[in-house]
Structure formats: C-alpha cells, structure tokens
Amino acid sequence: MIAISCTVAFIAISAAMLLCLYRVLVGPDMPTRILALDTLTINAIALVVLIGIYWNTGLYFEAALLFAMVGFLTTVAYCKYILRGNVME
C-alpha cells in the first residue's frame, strides 16, 4: 500500500516539477523564474525524501538538508543581485 501511494506521489511530484520547468522556460520575467527555480528545489527535496521511504533507507536525509540549504541560498543570492546589483557588499 505504501509502495502504491509512493508511485502516485512520484507521478504527482514529477508533474509538479514539469510545471515548474514550464515557468522557468516561459518566464515572463526574472522574479518569476527565480520563484519557479525555488519551487523546483522544494519539489526535489520532496522527491529525495520519498525515495528514502520507498527504498527504506535513512541515508538520503543529508542530501535533502543540503538541497534545502543550497536552494534557499541561491534564491536569496539571485534576489539580492536584482535588488542591489551585486551579492556581496
């Protein structure tokens, strides 16, 4: 039963990632693309956690944590670049 719901979730999250990819490609402006990239990272975290459940291993949590941190930092860096013209002041 868990395997079935995992499969359903894999499909739903993959579809969600495709929708995000559509927004990254189409735009129309820079902040939208940044938001779409951020959502893409969050979906990737979900996928990593789900693979951990599916294969019954706790090895992937560090990967999910790293995704969360790097995703947050890149989003903030992009926005900072738009707002201030550079990242480090």
Partner: peptide, 18 residues
C-alpha cells in the same frame, strides 16, 4: 500512505498555481 498522498497533492497544487 494518506500523509504521502496529501503531501504530493499539495506539492502538485503549489506548482500548478505557479
């Protein structure tokens, strides 16, 4: 199973709204 499906549903809705 219910929590997995709920989570996947909300993730999909979020990206769909985007």
């Amino acid at each position: 199973s219910a929590l997995i499906c709920l989570g996947a549903f909300f993730l999909f809705v979020g990206s769909f709204g985007l």
